[in-house]
């Protein structure tokens, strides 16, 4: 499975970075996003009485290389909050126990920008992790790497030649866990070379 993904990524890279004799300028762009996400996840845990939260803060960072044509490539990482469970009453788990489910994406991103409108997609892996807290102390922490993808659309408005702001709507997916996250975030962009 992993080898198939590596082959696809290498093939993508090879095609994307293919022959070109007349190259123009390129840019390196750093994007930071901060916003809210809502997860869509099949709830299969049954607790006597618990409070579930599927909305949470998200923050991501993207580094993109934009060559002299439309399509840029880069990497993205960050922190996505998937779901929180707060135990109110249960036979075995202490009342007040909190279980937090989150994901750290590490994605190869393919992005196009024109007239400030940016659309992107990405594939890669997610560090899917859970922390169980009792009295605000982590008693159990566990994680697993899962394959997933992302698509996004957004707008960018330049403030100066190197700085700009904007907004993004993104959909993150971790198919193995049947998890999707929809996020709405503010975007801050810094252009290093131009």
């Amino acid at each position: 499975m992993k080898s198939i993904i590596i082959i696809i990524l290498l093939m993508s890279g090879n095609i994307l970075l293919g022959q070109d004799t007349l190259r123009g300028d390129y840019r390196i762009i750093i994007q930071g996003n901060l916003g809210l996400s809502r997860s869509y996840i099949q709830r299969t845990t049954i607790i006597d009485k618990a409070e579930y939260t599927q909305t949470g803060l998200m923050g991501t960072m993207r580094v993109l290389w934009r060559p002299d044509h439309l399509l840029g490539i880069g990497i993205e990482t960050g922190l996505l909050r998937v779901s929180n469970l707060l135990v109110k009453e249960d036979a075995n788990l202490p009342v007040g126990s909190a279980i937090k489910l989150g994901a750290i994406p590490i994605l190869a991103v393919f992005s196009m920008e024109k007239y400030g409108i940016e659309i992107s997609s990405g594939v890669g892996i997610y560090d899917y992790h859970v922390d169980a807290l009792v009295n605000a102390e982590i008693t159990t922490s566990s994680n697993e790497w899962e394959i997933g993808w992302m698509v996004s659309a957004g707008y960018y408005y330049p403030l100066t030649r190197s700085l700009g702001v904007g907004g993004d709507v993104r959909l993150y997916a971790i198919p193995e866990r049947s998890v999707q996250l929809m996020s709405l975030s503010a975007k801050f962009q810094w252009q290093l070379w131009y």
Binding site: I41, T45, A91, L93, L101, T140, N143, V179
Partner: peptide, 23 residues
């Protein structure tokens, strides 16, 4: 299993957690 809060090695969880958080 079913149980969205169960991630990673089974040895990371106590028996009580396994009983309550997954089927």
């Amino acid at each position: 299993i079913n149980g969205e809060y169960m991630v990673g090695p089974i040895g990371n969880y106590t028996y009580a957690q396994i009983q309550e958080l997954c089927r």
